[in-house]
Computed example of a mutant assay.
Amino acid sequence: MTTTGDAHAIEVTGLGVRFRRNRRGRQSIKSMFASSARRAPKDEFWALRDVSFQVRPGEAIGVIGRNGQGKSTLLKLVAGVLLPDEGVVTVNGGVAPLIEITGGFVGDLTVRENVRLTSGLHGMTRAEVARRYDGIIAFSELEEFQDTPYKHLSNGMKVRLAFSVVSQLDDPILLVDEVLAVGDKAFRAKCYARIDELLAEGRTLFFVSHSEKDLRRFCTRGLYIRDHRLVLDGPITDVVEAYNGDNPV
């Protein structure tokens, strides 16, 4: 990932990333070394290939596709969590990633300690963390659990904490995977209202979801990933209709 002064918030050109399929059964260290030299190309597959698009600052982009087609991989490439095997990902400005609910959190640390740690990892100064701490805790509704180890929280609580931290970041690009689906209905409504606020401030949204309702609610433009390639980039209504046409209920 590179960062330049280009006018686009995100620019992806000829992007490709490949992974190796897991072999069945367990191998000894000796057999792993012996087989590495003769590993067949079929052991590898392209999770994404030849993907190109641009995102303007302030756009709200929805990414849709069937499971296993590379949507979350694309999000991680934009976040800089993964590096491409082909092509270039250029991101102009910091990213606030809500990709995995456990990312950056330490199980044995308390909620209070994790807020300070993860906020610092995202670039907040100690003064900023101190100033925003009460707001983060209040939004997450975890006032009674501040001294509880993170590992004892439910998945819903972890989602609330992660979103509360990320939504307080000043980074201009918000990356959201479908982790919000884990939260309860009332908290999702709070999250959606917060996303509306961030969009009104001019933030850029890159949103991976299977929810047609959510995609239409937040996004004006969509990317349809099929067979590990970008097959349609256009208005969100057209993209959702194309996806539904390929995947009738």
Rank of each mutant, 00 (worst) to 15 (best):
K71T: 00
G70Y: 02
L77Y: 09
L82Q: 05
L83Q: 14
V89H: 06
N92S: 15
V89F: 04
L75I: 11
L77G: 12
L74N: 10
R66S: 13
T73D: 11
I64T: 04
V91H: 03
T90G: 03
L75K: 05
N67R: 07
S72T: 13
A79M: 05
G80P: 04
L74A: 09
D85H: 13
A79Q: 02
S72G: 08
E86C: 12
D85C: 04
G93Y: 01
K76M: 06
L74V: 15
G87C: 11
D85S: 04
G87Y: 08
S72P: 06
V78L: 12
N92M: 10
G65H: 03
R66M: 08
G68N: 08
G94I: 05
L82K: 05
G87R: 03
T90V: 15
V88M: 13
N92Y: 05
V78P: 05
T90W: 00
N67P: 10
K76H: 05
V91D: 02
P84S: 10
A79D: 15
R66V: 13
G94P: 00
G93T: 02
D85E: 15
R66T: 14
A79G: 15
G68K: 06
L83E: 15
V78D: 03
P84Q: 09
G93R: 03
A79L: 10
V78N: 04
G68I: 10
L74D: 08
L75D: 05
L74E: 13
P84K: 00
Q69R: 13
P84D: 00
R66K: 14
V78C: 10
K76R: 15
V81M: 11
N67S: 11
N67V: 09
K71A: 03
P84I: 04
D85F: 00
G70P: 01
Q69Y: 09
V88Y: 05
G87P: 06
E86R: 14
L74I: 15
T73R: 06
V88A: 14
S72H: 11
L77S: 12
D85N: 15
L75S: 04
T73I: 13
L75P: 02
K71N: 09
N92A: 10
V78K: 01
L77P: 08
A79H: 06
I64M: 11
I64A: 03
G87N: 15
T90N: 15
L83H: 14
V89E: 09
L83R: 15
G70S: 02
A79Y: 03
